[in-house]
Amino acid sequence: MTANARENILSRLRAIPTHGRYTVPEAPVIAGLALSREERIDRLRRMLEVMHAEVQVVAAREWLGELKTLLRTRALNGLLYAPATPLGAVLEAAWEEGLPPLVPYVEPVEQCRESLFTIDAGITSTRGAIAETGALILWPSVAEPRLMSLTPGLHIAVLEAEAIFNTFAEAIDRQGWLEQGMPTNVLLISGPSKTADIELTLTFGVHGPKELVVFILQ
């Protein structure tokens, strides 16, 4: 039934003798932001906070302490983490009594669907961030799967301050997204999940995480 759909559609599109009659306006060159390192951190923090993310800019050696403090104040049933990542190794080495149990994500989703949908918190690394609009870049992988930043109610993300770019375009370019090939999934995340579908009233925590905590490591 649809065997010819492709050919029919493409031949209709090709049959049109209007090339040249459809003008493409010249694309203006728009200068992107050019902020200093400190300004990028500051802008990212501000933009994320407007979107109700909690942002902590901390020294690299202090962030684990801050994380522990945060986790101790909450009654969490577990922290989903990716053991095969550098971040995972750091967490394992630093884990101690009184913290919610570290729960590794090591089985295919088919075997752990229940627990993924009931665990309270997840922690992931990030591949960078965008200062202009305020967004984290997540690059899920074999070691760090996609649902980690989605199903838990609290998503904690760890970002190296060096990896904050001015703009989305700059991140694509400087990180060589094209050259190295796109992964299964790339995500830009700018806050906890939200909706304004009822009377445009902005409320946070719909289907995705209710909270996003970002540690920016200096």
Binding site: M47, M51, M182, N185, L187, L188, S190
Partner: peptide, 14 residues
Amino acid sequence: PITTYFNMITSPRR
């Protein structure tokens, strides 16, 4: 300035 999520999908599960 941007939505909460921008989701770029390039393949099924690898």
